[in-house]
Write a protein that binds this DNA or RNA. Structure first.
Lengths: 246, 246
DNA sequence: GTCTATAAGCGGATAGAC
DNA sequence: GTCTATCCGCTTATAGAC
């Protein structure tokens, strides 16, 4: 999702073919569900970026509407309240997040490669969808004013499952004993930070934005840190693979 | 700072001793600098908590004033604009942060204990002043809309110095080679997260808030992860010291 | 579905009396 | 320093025509 397909949809928006004269088969008269879905997604996508930058209260529905190219009243036709739009954004972020991480950290897998994959997937998410990550982060930082129930129902179980997997590996002697909850807290933080704090990172690195090479380096370091901490791997093949840009 | 001395200041606020009659020595007529400083601090303290919870746009100066027990117009006497108040909050957070971390990560120190101290100090900060940490985090996540210059001038050099120290340890062969920037990114994230994401953590742990024992466990795991990643330490003395509450 | 019009309230900020 | 009064713009949301 994210930035895709906005342009095409926008150009075709106002006024489809006129109805009265030339149409052979009468167009279906039920509410246009497809259009509804497209508009919902497009509005949510615009809202996601704006909420990420300015926070819930820092964005007006008029601004979202303007970015999509519709009127604010029209936006209110699709989302009855600003809060509904905000929740929809969080839902979308969460859906994709759960989808991407489904099945990773399977307790039957090899711990090292399972953890590697998990870290890679989370970093990919930070890279592909920083806005979503940021909206979620600010909601959590604010103390879950809108999304506490959903987080409890959908996120916490997923996180607990990962902790549980790690604990099973410990119990089976496949990794060294460690406080699994805190290890996972750190994994989440270390991967999330590449979305949330990338502005600060860019400033430290003296560049405009993080590059692909930065994300590769991040993946290597996070994986090394985590794996070594539970006695899984000494060091990656090459000591420090040549950075491409930076 | 934070929550201290609010009560006493509030009770004595309205109307000091009347001026006309009984006073022997005429009270100094210059602007009361001491009062100014106290009020500034008190307002900033209240604002810090509110900004942390609701974000810059989610807080009205009237709400801040109400929490302090003054009128909104009176608040505007001390801070001419809402933005000035917000910057003052960030300044305060940054001042204390730099103060606490000053001198840590000295390149002449033993790397292991220097890093341990650094991690402990950052975690203590997350624990003592979560609101400040959160305000800062949301400002960064939002892309530094107000505080870019200050971050560039005061924070980035401090962060770079820490990276530099780590690099010197690598060059001197005192620690194993590693991508120092990313290691530090992870250290910042792993310590910061115990302030910013503590709500989510509490939900995962099934408790109201993080306890002292949680912070001790965090310190142990973060230190272990970081030190091991550069070949500094095998494991802490006891395998898993008995948790006190949880 | 999309538009115009408008309700009803809160936001930050200023002016001036005391 | 603190108060009263007030300006004005922007906000979410609704009503109803087309």
């Amino acid at each position: 999702m994210a930035t895709a397909k906005r342009a095409e949809a926008s150009t075709q928006r106002r006024r489809r073919a006129p109805r009265g004269a030339t149409a052979g088969a009468p167009p279906p008269r039920r509410p246009d569900l497809r259009r509804r879905r497209v508009m919902d997604a497009e509005i949510a996508c615009a809202a996601e970026e704006l909420f990420a930058q300015h926070g819930f209260h820092g964005v007006s529905i008029a601004e979202v509407a303007a970015r999509v190219g519709i009127s604010k009243q029209n936006l209110l036709y699709y989302f009855p309240t600003k809060e509904a739009l905000y929740r929809r954004v969080l839902d979308g972020v969460l859906d994709e997040w759960l989808e991407r991480l489904r099945g990773l950290a399977d307790p039957d897998k090899d711990p090292a490669s399972a953890l590697r994959e998990y870290i890679a997937a989370k970093l990919r998410y930070s890279r592909d969808r920083p806005s979503g990550s940021r909206v979620f982060a600010t909601e959590i930082i604010a103390g879950l004013p809108f999304y506490a129930a959903e987080l409890r129902e959908r996120v916490v179980p997923a996180l607990r499952a990962q902790v549980e997997t790690l604990n099973r590996w410990v119990a089976a002697g496949r990794v060294e004993p460690i406080d699994a909850v805190h290890l996972m807290f750190i994994v989440w933080a270390a991967t999330q930070t590449y979305a949330d704090f990338s502005h600060q990172m860019a400033l430290v690195l003296g560049k405009e934005a993080l590059s692909a090479a930065d994300f590769e380096a991040a993946e290597e370091v996070v994986a090394r840190i985590v794996l070594r901490s539970i006695g899984l791997e000494a060091a990656p093949p090459g000591p420090t693979p040549a950075p491409r840009d930076r």
